[in-house]
Nucleic acid binder design. Structure first.
Lengths: 244, 244
DNA sequence: TAAGAATTTATTGTCAACAATAATAAAATA
DNA sequence: TATTTTATTATTGTTGACAATAAATTCTTA
């Protein structure tokens, strides 16, 4: 399954993963990426205390670069750091996830507005083709959630990457979407229906195609706040189950 | 003049400066704050190449903490960093400033919407009092631009600090507003009229007072995009002058 | 025995030396 | 003379040791 996604991303060269810079020139960068993935996938569990010397040993580097990596992880909200006291991996409570989804609603909505003005017709055609591909892959592989979520990310990424505001792109790509992936790992066991999402996506692209920035923004906002309502519900159910 | 602002901020405990964390427990934090101010005020000029050993010497620390400070400065977009090649102070060209103002429009607009729902009546009363104070201080000290700009920041800060989204507050306060202060230092010699801004502010607070989040957001957005149009004009004039 | 103070241990913050890379200058060739 | 190649220098990346602080433990006393 993972392979299929990988190949697809390479083929059409517009997948999320292929477009991340992933510059690992220095040791610190490399280990940053590694720890980031380990946190997002849960290999290093949430709330886990981080001891610099231990972690440095397990990644086979010295404390200097590790420290730089931790600083970077702090700047994208994946670890908390208190002077003299040490670092912990963040715990994604419901409040934090709400904050993230709200941010996403605001920023991606605005990015969609900007992209609607800036996109070429070729870009829009690409978007339609992307959605058609998602549609057919849903028919073919009903229930294979991982792929569908990646497809969802591909769509969102393609849209906001055309907004021509580097700050916006950077923040969405390097900060919000990392935490979002972490959220998804937490809720990945829970099935959800993708057809409504695809329907939303078509509506958004239609608005872009009609060059209606206000509508495009509103639709993207609703799409995201709708997604949050689903996630919130699931989290609340989970919480209730645990407290019993 | 500076003193007056300072006293005012302490007295009512709602100024921008008093609410920034400013934790300088470690050497690295301390020097981070120092360099940050030096960049924002222009003591270290834009586009300036940064040599770690030199800078470490001039701040009387070793390269370790300096490096951490530089990383932090990079994460708030105040320096650019390329592996093995070194760092430079950013140069605020018109594109970057447009990006920042766009971000601000999106995020502060959304923050205003959230704050409109979350604010207590006491908060709103405080806002009205703050505006009245600004109004009278404009009458008293016409033309003293520094104070007026600080007053403007106080207003904006007070609003978005009530949005109850820690990510949003953090981003606006620690990233966007730092670059914004840098912009203002660049354009500080240029006079501008504050009465229209005050009028906008009243309209925004009225919308909040009527508990109309949509309108509050729209008004805040217009207020900020209007401010950008003024700044953009000034920058273009400046550019034309230089190219002659 | 329980609470508080003093001591020890563990962990982070800082430093200065070393290695690796990129920018610069010098030399060689066309 | 212009251009490529080579050597030099300057600057960053990395490391391990040391100092300062916080957490844990032991000891004392009520």
């Amino acid at each position: 399954m993972l392979n299929l996604v990988f190949i697809l991303n390479i083929v059409d060269n517009m997948g999320v993963n292929s477009l991340q810079p992933n510059k690992q020139d220095t040791l610190s960068e490399h280990v940053f990426e590694q720890i980031k993935e380990d946190i997002i996938t849960g290999a290093i569990p949430q709330g886990c205390k981080i001891v610099e010397t231990d972690l440095a040993k397990s990644y086979h580097i010295s404390r200097g670069p590790l420290r730089e990596a931790l600083h970077k992880l702090e700047s994208i909200h994946l670890v908390d750091r208190r002077p003299h006291s040490g670092s912990r991996v963040v715990t994604l409570d419901i409040v934090m996830m709400r904050d993230v989804y709200q941010m996403r609603e605001a920023m991606e909505g605005f990015a969609t507005r900007l992209a609607c003005v800036a996109m070429s017709q070729a870009d829009i055609d690409n978007l339609y083709r992307l959605l058609e591909k998602h549609e057919s892959s849903i028919e073919r592989s009903e229930g294979q959630r991982y792929f569908q979520k990646e497809g969802d990310l591909d769509f969102h990424y393609y849209v906001f990457s055309k907004c021509q505001n580097q700050w916006l792109i950077d923040y969405l790509n390097n900060k919000l979407y990392q935490v979002l992936r972490m959220c998804r790992h937490r809720t990945s066991q829970i099935p959800f229906r993708v057809e409504p999402a695809l329907h939303d996506h078509y509506a958004i692209v239609d608005a872009i195609n009609n060059r209606d920035p206000e509508l495009a923004e509103i639709l993207m906002r609703r799409h995201i706040s709708g997604a949050w309502k689903v996630v919130e519900k699931l989290l609340n159910q989970e919480e209730n189950k645990e407290s019993k």
